[in-house]
């Protein structure tokens, strides 16, 4: 009986703790949603909490007409489609040979380090910018995709996952006459779907959330991905340096409801994608790291 009581306490505290963590994640989103659905006058007083006051859809109507928002949404969708696919294909094809033992792949250590080093050291912004510029990628969606085309962290996750796959599977494939390509696509990839889904999710979220590269590599605002655009909407000018012209603009853009509507709509696609990939997510991470 005593033991049972102890367990109960643990469960209670654990549940409360997890509920608090969950609330910390969900409440800001609800707050934003509530503001976006309130009238802009009441929202400017900062009194809206988790339920809209003076319900209004004006901000959504305004966003619907805001071309820049939808342009950048399209760029972002294009980016995650291309970027996600490229990340996953490259991660898979790189992880496969690196998961082999040294006797199968003699320069394994060399290649592994080559990739690993890029994870720790970067060239810095200016050299990267100049490289992208000289390659003629400025103002194209490729500037957002190619610099991060090989997600080394994902490669490591996948590599460990491949190692966990029973050797007998690949051995039998070889006995049946399959080559490395065939083995990879017909054996390894299908059994590694959890891990692949995980790295896909990493890559999608990463591409969706990054904004700085869009700001730097795009010369035309209509090429901005969504988050670069959002950054210009959300970041507030400091009041000490506000010029009269900016103040007049502030009167319009300080509209909190409009900001909130865009934040909410901007987060929506990734929120929708999450549940579908999430079930793989947990499994993949655990499996990939057990023998890490």
């Amino acid at each position: 009986m005593r033991i049972k009581k102890k367990l109960d306490w643990f469960l209670v505290i654990n549940n409360i703790f997890l509920l608090l963590v969950a609330a910390a994640c969900v409440l800001p989103m609800i707050h934003i949603l509530a503001i976006s659905l309130s009238s802009s006058a009441i929202a400017s007083t900062g009194t809206v909490t988790f339920w809209p006051k003076e319900f209004s859809l004006t901000s959504y109507e305004f966003v619907a007409q805001r071309k820049a928002f939808w342009d950048s949404m399209l760029v972002s969708l294009q980016r995650i489609a291309l970027g996600g696919a490229i990340n996953v294909v490259l991660a898979t094809t790189i992880a496969y040979p690196l998961s082999k033992e040294k006797k199968d792949f003699s320069f394994r250590a060399f290649y592994a380090w080559t990739f690993f080093i890029t994870m720790i050291f970067g060239a810095g912004l200016i050299p990267t910018y100049m490289l992208v510029k000289e390659l003629g990628l400025i103002d194209t969606v490729w500037a957002l995709i190619l610099p991060g085309a090989v997600p080394v962290f994902s490669v490591i996750v996948l590599l460990n996952f491949f190692r966990l796959t029973p050797k007998e599977l690949s051995e039998s494939a070889f006995i049946d006459g399959a080559g490395h390509w065939r083995t990879l696509w017909s054996i390894y990839v299908p059994v590694s779907m959890p891990a692949i889904a995980t790295i896909l999710l990493f890559s999608l979220v990463g591409h969706w959330n990054s904004w700085f590269d869009g700001l730097i590599y795009m010369n035309n605002q209509s090429n901005y991905p969504l988050q670069s655009y959002m950054q210009t909407v959300v970041v507030q000018k400091s009041f000490t340096t506000l010029t009269p012209e900016e103040a007049k603009v502030m009167a319009k853009i300080s509209d909190k409801t409009l900001k909130s509507a865009q934040i909410f709509l901007g987060a929506l696609p990734i929120i929708c994608a999450y549940p579908f990939l999430q079930k793989y997510f947990v499994k993949g991470m655990v499996l990939g790291s057990v023998k890490g």
């Binding site: 200016i126 910018y129 700001l215 605002q221």
Partner: peptide, 22 residues
């Protein structure tokens, strides 16, 4: 050569442009 939104974004972009030399 490029257009960008007002404020910090412009300064950042200008910094990159200046350092890249073009």
């Amino acid at each position: 050569d490029w257009t960008v939104s007002t404020g910090d974004a412009y300064t950042q972009k200008m910094n990159v442009t200046l350092t890249s030399g073009d």
